[in-house]
């Protein structure tokens, strides 16, 4: 989209304005990404002494391994769970805070702060609470409620734990954006609906939600990307992909094979697959969601 009215006679300036971004992107993003693409077709030793071009061998090895197929499935669960929990959580908090009159500022502060915690530290904090051996909450669950909580051996417990830890941080992020969007809705509109007899739920469904749908759309993209890419620190701190691969999401596998396993080819091939997945995901979101999204402006 471009402004109907624009500076059509300042082409050189436009290029100049774009130059810093493009320079950094070329040197630190596109050039390295192209090299990753190249690596995906090679088998090389980590020291960079030998590389052999192997066509699609890396992809074949990856796609034929049952562990990778498991990883795809676990990623689907993880990113759906995290995105849903984080977006809904953020929306719920925003709606509640927008509604209450007393203690608004305090509530806001208390919801926002987790956003300031580094993902890897978030992972460590949650581990400290929920580790079956020394975690305070884990012990409480076991002794107080008789719940045999064990994310070290139970895959579902582990998945729940990483989803909670990953969405915990994102709830604050989504909350900030939803609250801004909610407060941007003209009061007159809602008052008019109230006068017409629409109750709180009805008002939310038919007026508020459509108006904040651009924000929701933006947040969906951001959250899926977050769940796909920015969460390996959390997985690394909490489960190492275990138990038995239950939380072995794609990005953790890329990290584990590339950085712990030092298999650049295998890791790059997975990166390429991951890129394709995210590109497809983004295109789908754009195609189908943008049509339904009603832009406020």
């Amino acid at each position: 989209m471009i402004k109907r009215v624009n500076f059509e006679r300042h082409r050189w300036l436009a290029f100049l304005l774009l130059a810093p971004q493009m320079l950094i992107l070329t040197v630190f993003v596109f050039w390295p990404a192209a090299q990753a693409l190249m690596q995906a077709f090679m088998i090389s030793d980590p020291f960079g002494v030998k590389s052999t071009f192997v066509w699609f061998d890396n992809f074949e090895a990856i796609l034929s391994s049952p562990e990778y197929l498991n990883s795809i499935w676990r990623t689907a669960i993880f990113s759906t769970g995290t995105t849903a929990a984080a977006v809904l959580g953020g929306l719920l908090f925003a709606v509640l805070v927008a509604r209450v009159r007393r203690g608004k500022t305090a509530y806001k502060l208390l919801v926002i702060w987790p956003y300031a915690v580094a993902p890897v530290l978030a992972g460590i904090l949650w581990l400290f609470l929920f580790h079956p051996i020394y975690g305070a909450i884990a012990l409480m669950l076991k002794q107080g409620f008789g719940i045999a909580w064990n994310p070290l051996l139970n895959g579902n417990d582990a998945m729940l734990l990483v989803i909670v830890a990953a969405s915990w941080k994102q709830v604050s992020y989504n909350f900030v954006f939803f609250l801004a969007a909610l407060q941007g809705i003209p009061r007159s509109l809602i008052e008019a609906a109230a006068i017409d007899g629409a109750g709180p739920v009805r008002r939310f469904v038919s007026i508020i939600f459509p108006l904040i749908s651009p924000t929701t759309f933006f947040l969906l993209v951001i959250n899926v990307v977050y769940a796909f890419f920015d969460t390996f620190g959390i997985i690394h701190a909490l489960t190492h992909g275990g138990p038995s691969g239950a939380t072995d999401i794609l990005v953790y596998k890329v990290y584990a094979d590339g950085f712990l396993g030092l298999d650049l080819g295998l890791s790059s091939a997975q990166s390429v697959i991951l890129m394709i997945v995210v590109i497809a995901l983004t295109v789908v979101q754009f195609r189908y969601l943008e049509r339904r999204v009603k832009y406020a402006a």
């Binding site: 562990e67 051996l153 992909g241 275990g242 138990p243 038995s244 072995d248 712990l260 396993g261 030092l262």
Partner: peptide
């Protein structure tokens, strides 16, 4: 690192 990780996953199973 890779084969140990694979082995540990199987042990967990």
């Amino acid at each position: 690192n890779q084969y140990v990780a694979a082995l540990e996953e199987e042990l967990e199973a």
